[in-house]
Amino acid sequence: MACASTALIVGGGIAGLSAAVALARVGVQCDVVELADASGGASLALSGRATEALDELGVYDACHARSTPFAAGTTASHQRDAQGRLISEGPQRPQWPGAKTPLGIHRPVLLEILEEAAQRLGAKVYRGVTTQTTVEDDDGVSVAMTDGHHGRYDFVVAADGIGSRTRSRVFPEAPKPSYAGQFSFRWMLSGPPIDGEGWYIGPEGRLGFYHLPQDLIYVPAVIDLPEGAWLTDKDTLAHFARLLDSYTAPAVVELRRRLTPDADLIARPFEWILLAAPWHRGRTLLIGDAAHATTAHMGMGGGMAIEDAVVLAQCVATTTTPAQAFDAFMERRYTRVATVVETSVAMSRLEQEGAPTSRNMALASDAFKALAQPY
């Protein structure tokens, strides 16, 4: 029997909705509040044990049906130079009996699947709403919401992202997120597939692409930019076009041909944070990017958020108090997510230093070996 019966989840992204599903499956009634009225974003890859976490949530099959599976032999992690010549087949990713196939999935699709699963299990999702005041006592947490309604919960899960207001309130001494020295560009492109998916490394930065269902192509890219850079839509298009122009690989030339002034481009600084343990104070626990946001160099940020949710539910189901559950959660999560954050930031620094690709692949391979262990 779970050590709690009610929980408030602040944030309706990947971490928050995964937590709602996982906790509901062990008997916890969850309310989820999310300021955004609708979900957005580009695509993400889910690999390693994260796909097992999806399966534990009961949504892997639904995700698989609406994603791009990265079966054995895929070129999605291959590294090529600006001319398209193969540099590396990518980091070594250990396999184990029964391992689930990695997936590339459109973020809004994943959130839709998770929200539907949460609601089927009885969770309530409130959009355009967040917490206003929180008062904790020995028996629980009383919360007033920005839409005027009130709730009483056994504990609160803060899954409100890298800019977490809950983190600022509960951990006022916590550091601010750090800029890694690079910008992430993401382009969701409609149209027929292009041969040669994988990663390309050139003088202006690196980019990759893979296909998604419904004639979508996801193109992530990374370039170095000084701290404090701020990009308008015009700046974003100019930087991205310059990056594409620096390649002669046929696949990238075709991507450049399809780039138009109204392209669906998202540019964000790569920021990261690894909150010192523990990530809980009183009856509030931080998970996902609120506690351990990372750059995307390992492609494991979303996967770590889903794992957080599953492990939290396991701990809630096997302990007698929320405090014990939170302690057990920290024992299992800190080292694992630190591996992802620290390795990703180190890979970012090596890229900026112009280090050989082999050094980054070695770092990533060592980290993937550690992450192959069960969560």
Rank of each mutant, 00 (worst) to 15 (best):
309 A>V: 07
308 D>W: 09
40 G>C: 02
114 L>T: 03
293 A>Q: 11
175 P>C: 08
292 H>N: 03
298 M>Q: 14
92 Q>L: 03
267 A>D: 01
358 S>W: 13
359 R>M: 12
32 V>A: 08
90 G>R: 04
84 G>M: 04
357 T>Y: 13
67 S>Q: 11
45 A>Q: 13
207 L>E: 06
11 G>F: 10
57 L>M: 15
370 A>I: 09
241 A>Q: 12
65 A>M: 07
250 P>L: 05
245 D>R: 12
350 L>Y: 11
182 Q>R: 09
320 T>D: 12
110 L>F: 15
199 W>S: 00
120 R>I: 06
330 M>T: 09
113 I>Q: 13
288 G>P: 03
359 R>T: 06
108 P>C: 04
194 I>F: 01
337 V>S: 14
85 R>G: 09
165 R>L: 14
85 R>L: 11
86 L>H: 06
216 L>T: 04
226 P>E: 13
310 V>M: 15
306 I>H: 10
83 Q>L: 04
268 R>Y: 11
324 Q>Y: 08
10 V>G: 06
114 L>A: 09
123 A>T: 02
17 L>Y: 07
365 S>I: 06
50 A>Y: 12
227 E>Q: 12
204 E>W: 08
82 A>P: 06
309 A>K: 11
7 A>V: 01
48 G>C: 03
344 S>M: 07
295 T>Y: 03
56 E>N: 14
22 A>V: 10
137 D>M: 01
362 A>Q: 15
253 V>H: 07
145 M>K: 04
16 G>L: 09
257 R>I: 00
140 G>Y: 07
237 L>I: 11
170 V>T: 04
7 A>S: 01
107 R>T: 00
72 A>D: 15
157 V>E: 10
18 S>P: 12
274 L>K: 04
119 Q>R: 15
221 A>L: 05
319 T>M: 04
165 R>D: 13
37 D>E: 14
346 A>T: 00
48 G>N: 08
368 F>V: 10
358 S>I: 01
303 G>I: 00
137 D>W: 09
125 V>Q: 14
67 S>G: 06
143 V>L: 09
299 G>D: 12
122 G>P: 10
43 S>D: 15
167 R>T: 12
168 S>V: 04
83 Q>I: 01
192 P>H: 11
188 M>E: 08
226 P>L: 03
255 L>Y: 07
57 L>G: 07
